[in-house]
């Protein structure tokens, strides 16, 4: 189940909770549990609620029309490496170049 969730996320782009819950046939509440679990284990990374501490210092903080567009989680390298089958498709040429560079180092 966790593996399937990671694979669904690793297809790239942004997924909503309801979309993923439908796909995995679980309730949104259970999906949230799995997201939190994967985040605790380092496969996902919570990205701060809409606007993190950087925004607190922003002059426009009180009037920002962007507001707080909900919580987000990003797939980490660790999470990505677990989804080998889907990995190559989502890499951009720039990213492939960077990885080649890191390998050379």
């Amino acid at each position: 189940m966790l593996q399937r969730l990671l694979e669904a996320v690793a297809r790239g782009g942004t997924h909503t909770r309801s979309e993923l819950a439908r796909e995995l046939r679980v309730s949104q509440e259970l999906l949230q549990e799995m997201i939190d679990d994967l985040a605790r284990r380092g496969y996902l990374r919570p990205m701060g609620e809409g606007c993190d501490e950087r925004c607190a210092a922003c002059l426009l903080h009180d009037t920002c029309a962007i507001g707080s567009p909900g919580r987000m989680w990003a797939l980490t390298e660790k999470g990505l490496s677990l989804t080998r089958g889907t990995r190559n498709r989502i890499r951009s040429p720039g990213e492939r170049a960077r990885i080649r560079g890191e390998r050379r180092k």
Binding site: T14, T16, R17, A74, L75, S92, P93, R98
Partner: peptide
């Protein structure tokens, strides 16, 4: 800029819609 200057970065996210 994405491809040439800054280099790609994998983007895969889960988003909560309020």
């Amino acid at each position: 800029l994405h491809e040439l200057v800054l280099g790609g970065e994998h983007v895969a996210f889960i988003m909560e819609l309020p």
